[in-house]
């Protein structure tokens, strides 16, 4: 596999010279973005099916066998719908907002490693880059809410801004613990640091278990998913920030939300669940390619996302703020100190 890639690179290098680098980078970006978009499409179907089964319904089953063509039908429907721009809306920002939501969700994938050395950019400050990119997604939501010139949308935007800023801090501190344990901000090195003879017991979710939970829950909050979907809150503020959006502009918000979910799943797998490493480094397991393990871990976390949505009622806004500021942030601060002290003792095995 690696030899083949190197051969392709060699041929391209000879053929195009200095122009090869941009071509190669665009190719790498496409190899990541196209599967993400397909996954988003089928994640929506999976969500409807899974929640359907949990609620003893069948879920979509009309378009294609077992409803497998449903995402295509949805996509075509959204493409052909009219994009309505409200009279009082700020047109430029109204159109820019969905794009601003989707771009960070896709840009963050640049540093995500899928196997040893398999990333668009093997950046040293990868972890920081991820944090920076995920914190930008909120702009699309705020701008959408403001530009729509609608009370519901504006309320959604304000809720979202406050919520994301709060949970980002907890998320950041949880990642500080990962950073301390791995002594690196390079995502590839973080996965390598979890490699040991102990298999899955070497992964960071064992010493950093509270941080694993904090990260996962904050991840649900960051992506505005139930039970933290106060920015949309269809029963309180109709659909929140995207109430005025229709057709493709709405679809972009939808795509961004699911792309963000997949991103959080990938990051949780990489930082806490050993990324592409097999659970045990023994014969049948370590012969399976690393990509499979990463995708398997991501699927489990994505299933959790769907499970949460089918299980928990929406948080009340003040409860949500309390959880973020008064529970998660102190907990993460304490755990940073605990990990720091723990690492000075001989009992630190990771």
């Amino acid at each position: 596999m690696m030899e083949l890639l190197q051969a392709v690179q060699q041929i391209g290098q000879d053929l195009l010279g200095p122009a090869w680098l941009p071509v190669w980078t665009v190719a790498k970006i496409l190899v990541i973005v196209v599967p993400i978009m397909l996954t988003v499409a089928y994640l929506t179907l999976a969500e409807r099916k899974v929640i359907g089964f949990m609620q003893i319904r069948i879920g979509p089953n009309r378009v294609g066998p077992y409803g497998l063509l449903q995402p295509l039908a949805d996509g075509v429907k959204l493409l052909f719908k009219e994009i309505i721009i409200p009279t009082g809306a700020n047109k430029a920002l109204f159109v820019a907002a969905p794009v601003l939501t989707l771009v960070p969700a896709l840009a963050a994938w640049a540093v995500v490693p899928f196997d040893v050395g398999m990333a668009v950019s093997n950046a040293n400050a990868g972890l920081l880059y991820i944090l920076a990119m995920t914190s930008l997604g909120v702009y699309g939501i705020i701008i959408a809410g403001w530009a729509s010139n609608s009370k519901y949308a504006f309320l959604g935007a304000l809720r979202s801004a406050a919520q994301i800023v709060s949970y980002e801090i907890a998320m950041g501190f949880a990642l500080v613990c990962v950073l301390m344990a791995s002594q690196s901000m390079n995502l590839g090195d973080i996965v390598q640091g979890q490699q040991s003879k102990a298999g899955l017991f070497g992964w960071y979710f064992i010493p950093l278990f509270p941080m694993f939970l904090v990260y996962l829950i904050s991840g649900v909050a960051e992506t505005n998913r139930a039970p933290f979907d106060v920015a949309e809150g269809e029963s309180e503020i109709v659909a929140g920030f995207h109430v005025e959006y229709s057709g493709m502009t709405f679809a972009l918000f939808f795509l961004a939300e699911y792309a963000n979910m997949i991103l959080i799943a990938a990051l949780t797998s990489i930082m806490f669940l050993g990324g592409w490493l097999p659970p045990f480094d023994v014969a049948p397991l370590n012969m399976i390619p690393g990509l499979f393990w990463l995708l398997a871990k991501m699927s489990v976390i994505l299933f959790l996302f769907l499970w949460f949505r089918a299980t928990f009622p929406r948080y009340r806004y003040d409860q949500l703020m309390r959880l973020g500021w008064k529970v998660f942030i102190p907990l993460t601060l304490v755990w940073v100190a605990v990990v720091g002290a723990w690492m000075q003792t001989p009992f630190w095995l990771w």
Binding site: A125, L128, Y129, L131, A132, S135, L136, V138, Y139, I142, W146, L158, A161, A162, I164, V165, E168
Partner: peptide, 18 residues
């Protein structure tokens, strides 16, 4: 550079806009 984006763009300016 990344900290500038993370702190000022990701948090401070969001509250500013707010």
């Amino acid at each position: 550079a990344v900290t500038l984006v993370l702190v000022y763009v990701g948090a401070v300016m969001v509250l500013f806009l707010f």
